[in-house]
Each structure stands twice: as structure tokens, then as C-alpha cells.
């Protein structure tokens, strides 16, 4: 197992709500710049995995490490510092609907300023510039003064991504970024995720139920010259170390690279290996 250079590490983590296990003896590890794709049926604990990873939920047993620090019992105030280095996209975006888009995206930056944490490059340029820049990244710079209720679901997701990446964190967590979107918008979202990952070599965990998302994450990369994603040649060094994690009823039933994933004979795992699976 890795040492303190890991970004996220779960050691035998369990979490129960009443009698139902949300996480059941889950252990895995992820290093810098790596990608993890998490599949699983509804209620299998995928969202819980992300929440426990940043300490939004405390496990009942086991240990969780974030950026090499044991956060299992860390207090909220101390977690804030670590969370400043993580970008999270929640399901549905979770934008603050009482704030404008600009304020939403600026929120993490304002917060860093209030908490006086030093983010990479956050003090070099004014917050407004960064907000505009980030919205341009997700191609929504014209929505600065709108409210989340005025945007479509896909646009809200994109703003969510903008908010998640505006602080240029080392770790990105995406919770079902393409759920409920049409294939074209979904493709756009994944493209943005890849763009973010490949531009700054961010560690990425993406929870999804679509095989295509995993496939793209594993095999495609962002080309800054063309502004599009394209298939990375197999076996090249530019391929990001991508592993698939399959969750079933809180247990991690499979962890492996894409070839291993496709070769798995487990019936449950194979469900996610088929395109169009949802």
C-alpha cells in the first residue's frame, strides 16, 4: 500500500445507518494525478464514499486518510483547511440558489480569503477575474448575474463544475455529473472533466452509472490544441492511471484497470461493463 503520498486512502472503513451498511469494510488507495471511476447500483454507497473521503460523514469504524492525514476523527475546523484543497461537484450541482452564478462560483474563493488559507494562485489575481475565467472554462460566462433557478440542469452542472475547479484543487470529486442529462450534454460534461484533469493533472474520483463515462475517463484525454478530447493511444505514458471501483451494497467488490474490468466474470460487475447500462 502507498505511503503518505497518497491523496485518498480508506482502511477498512465501515458506516452504518441503523442496520443498513452504507460502507462495508471498504479499503482502497489513490495517488496524485490518478483517476478512479466508481460504479454501483443506486444505494450501493457511492455517494457515501465521496462524503466520507472529505469528512462530511464520519465512519463508524476504520480509518480515512486525506492528503496523508488521518481525518477519521478530525474536527470540522481542521477539516476546512484540507477541504480547501478538494473540489466537489454534488449531485444536481447543489448551487446556492440565493446567490447569483458569479457569487456561487466566487464562493470558495471568498471563503479562502475569509479563512485566510493560501490557495495556489488565489491571491495573484482578483476574484472576479478568476470567476469569469472559470465560467469561460465551462462555457457559461454569460450567466454571471443569473440565478441557479434560471438555468437548466445541465447548465447548473456546469456551474457546479466551475465552482469545483475555481480554486484549482489537487483532488476533484464528481458525484454523478452526467445523471439525467442527454448524451450530448453528458459528453460535454465529461469533456470538461477531462479538460480539468489533464490541464492540471488533478486526481479525480468520478461516481457514475454510465459505462461511457468510465470509458472516456480511462481512454481519452484533452487536447489543448484542438480544444477537444480524443482517444489516448493505449499504453502510452500519457494515459492516466485509471482504476474502476465497483460498489455493491456498501462493499467494494472490484478494483482494477479497464482491461481487468472488462475481463471480470462477476455478474454484477459485468452489468456496468456494457454500454448503455444505467
Amino acid at each position: 500500500m502507498g505511503t503518505d503520498s497518497s491523496i485518498v486512502r480508506f482502511e477498512d472503513v465501515s458506516l452504518h445507518f441503523g442496520d443498513t451498511p452504507a460502507l462495508d469494510h471498504v479499503s482502497f488507495e489513490m495517488g496524485a494525478g490518478e483517476t478512479r471511476v466508481v460504479f454501483g447500483a443506486a444505494g450501493s454507497g457511492k455517494t457515501m464514499l465521496l462524503k466520507v473521503a472529505v469528512g462530511l460523514q464520519k465512519p463508524d469504524s476504520g480509518r480515512v486518510f486525506l492528503f496523508g492525514q488521518d481525518i477519521t476523527h478530525l474536527s470540522e475546523e481542521r477539516l476546512f483547511d484540507l477541504r480547501a484543497r478538494v473540489g466537489i461537484l454534488f449531485q444536481e450541482g447543489a448551487l446556492f440558489d440565493s446567490l447569483t452564478i458569479a457569487d456561487n462560483v466566487a464562493y470558495p474563493l471568498e471563503n479562502q480569503r475569509i479563512l485566510q488559507t493560501v490557495g495556489a494562485g488565489s491571491e495573484q489575481r482578483s476574484i472576479e477575474e478568476r470567476v469569469v475565467e472559470t465560467l469561460r472554462f465551462v462555457e457559461l460566462e454569460q450567466t454571471l448575474d443569473k440565478f441557479p433557478s434560471e438555468l437548466s440542469g445541465g447548465m447548473r452542472r456546469r456551474v457546479g463544475i466551475a465552482r469545483a475547479v475555481v480554486t484549482q484543487p489537487e483532488l476533484e470529486l464528481y458525484d454523478s455529473p452526467t445523471a439525467g442529462l442527454d448524451p450530448i450534454t453528458a459528453h460535454t460534461i465529461i469533456s470538461l472533466i477531462l479538460k480539468e484533469r489533464d490541464t492540471r493533472n488533478t486526481a479525480t474520483i468520478i461516481v457514475t452509472h454510465r459505462y461511457q463515462d468510465g470509458q472516456l475517463m480511462a481512454n481519452f484525454r484533452y487536447n489543448p490544441n484542438s480544444g477537444e478530447i480524443e482517444a489516448a493511444p493505449r499504453g502510452s505514458e500519457e494515459t492516466v492511471d485509471t482504476k474502476f471501483l465497483i460498489m455493491q451494497a456498501g462493499r467494494l467488490v472490484f478494483e482494477g484497470t479497464e482491461p481487468e474490468f472488462l475481463a471480470c466474470t462477476d455478474e454484477y460487475v459485468r452489468k456496468f461493463a456494457r454500454p448503455g447500462a444505467s
Binding site: I88, F96, P108
Partner: peptide, 17 residues
């Protein structure tokens, strides 16, 4: 409403109490 749309969690994730 903020709780059920995960805005509270987002706040916590973004470093606000």
C-alpha cells in the same frame, strides 16, 4: 430546502460552517 439539495453539505465542503 438547502439541506435536501445538498447545499449545506456543499457549504461544509467549501469550508463554511
Amino acid at each position: 430546502s438547502m439541506k435536501v439539495t445538498e447545499q449545506i453539505d456543499a457549504m461544509r465542503a467549501l469550508g463554511t460552517d
